[in-house]
Design a protein around this nucleic acid. Structure first.
Lengths: 200, 200
DNA sequence: CCCATTATGGACCGAGCAGTCCAAACTTAG
DNA sequence: CTAAGTTTGGACTGCTCGGTCCATAATGGG
């Protein structure tokens, strides 16, 4: 799994590598892109071609995947602490609001979406997004089972399937947001599914 | 709106134009792509550069948008006749199965997705997908209100919002399918929302 | 049959861009 | 201090690909 860390990395080296990733991520989060070039990244991060290939020997794809991993970490972090403790209806509502707020703020720009568009069909790309969705869903499953344990959600409900529905709904809601600029669909899904959890 | 039709198009001309669109669409539906080049399209459709620019003066973007429109028509067509007559629970289930079957058959390849990835941020792109989703949702709204009219769905339910949830859920389900290869999420969303319609 | 219009072939151009390479600057262990 | 290893600069290469251009063939109306 993953590439060996070449040889060594001094403190300075790790800092540069980090600077490249974070800089690229920030750029992708902005309104400009659609396509990033290595020269863009080079300019933004104040580095040279040789540095990029020094720290990401496999080139652009390796770099972008690293950025994608970085961004996917942010996705879950931005939902905390709510996502981690879905133990009451109030908590679910706070989480819902956090998700909507996060994506409303992001607006039409979707860093991960932009990334996937460019790295799209490579093997590593699917892996990154799959891992993210799996973690996300795991949190929801935990939340649902906790609610069931306390008797707030009827026990016959399949937490696995409902959480899958949440994931799909959010994904789709964000996608719609990207083309229409509205969070209507995202909100509608979240509300409908939370209602469904409540037993209407 | 839309470009004027240049000057004239003989029968032969229209045929060629059509051949280009359909050929490009077929190619994008295959397993190969990720990125199409005009030379790919040229090779597949047995045409020359000059023809492409003759029939699509604005170049690649215009061509791809045309392909996207073509594909987006297929999306709805493939759900017919079910999508058009959601007047009973049996009909809803048939529609659900049709959607799942369609996307299962398509598998990881998503022609429209591939298209949007390439044409992504242009003004026309958002318009195409927005139009598609709006039509799709309109069918669902009609279905829900019809069910309400017959008393099969409780009247206080907001058909607008629930249909939005369906759209988002399907979108997201397909997106998950594209990275995981599984229709689990798509099915879970559809089932959860239909349950929600039924009043659990 | 002729001319205006449309359709087609394909050589060519130029920009953009990922990736290579070598030399220079620095860090650090011994 | 020095040698080995790491970091950095940036010129250069090679290729891909959208788009241009002009020449030739087909077509169809009068």
């Amino acid at each position: 799994m993953g590439y060996r860390c070449h040889v060594a990395l001094t403190e300075k080296g790790r800092a540069t590598r980090e600077r490249i990733i974070v800089g690229a991520a920030e750029y992708l989060r902005g309104d400009i892109p659609g396509e990033v070039t290595l020269d863009d990244i080079r300019a933004i991060t104040g580095t040279s071609k040789s540095q990029i290939f020094h720290y990401f020997p496999a080139g652009k794809e390796e770099l972008l995947l690293e950025v994608a991993r970085y961004e996917s970490r942010r996705v879950l972090d931005d939902q905390q602490p709510h996502l981690g403790s879905l133990t009451s209806w109030a908590a679910w509502n706070r989480w819902r609001d956090a998700v909507v707020a996060r994506y409303r703020a992001q607006g039409r720009n979707c860093p991960l979406g932009a990334l996937m568009a460019q790295v799209g069909s490579t093997p590593g790309a699917a892996e990154v997004v799959t891992a993210l969705l799996a973690q996300w869903q795991a949190h929801l499953i935990q939340g649902i089972t906790q609610m069931q344990a306390v008797g707030l959600v009827r026990p016959e409900l399949d937490s696995d399937r409902v959480s899958a529905a949440f994931i799909a709904g959010i994904q789709g809601g964000v996608q719609v947001l990207r083309s229409t600029g509205s969070t209507r669909h995202l909100e509608a899904t979240l509300d409908a599914l939370i209602d469904h959890l409540r037993g209407v």
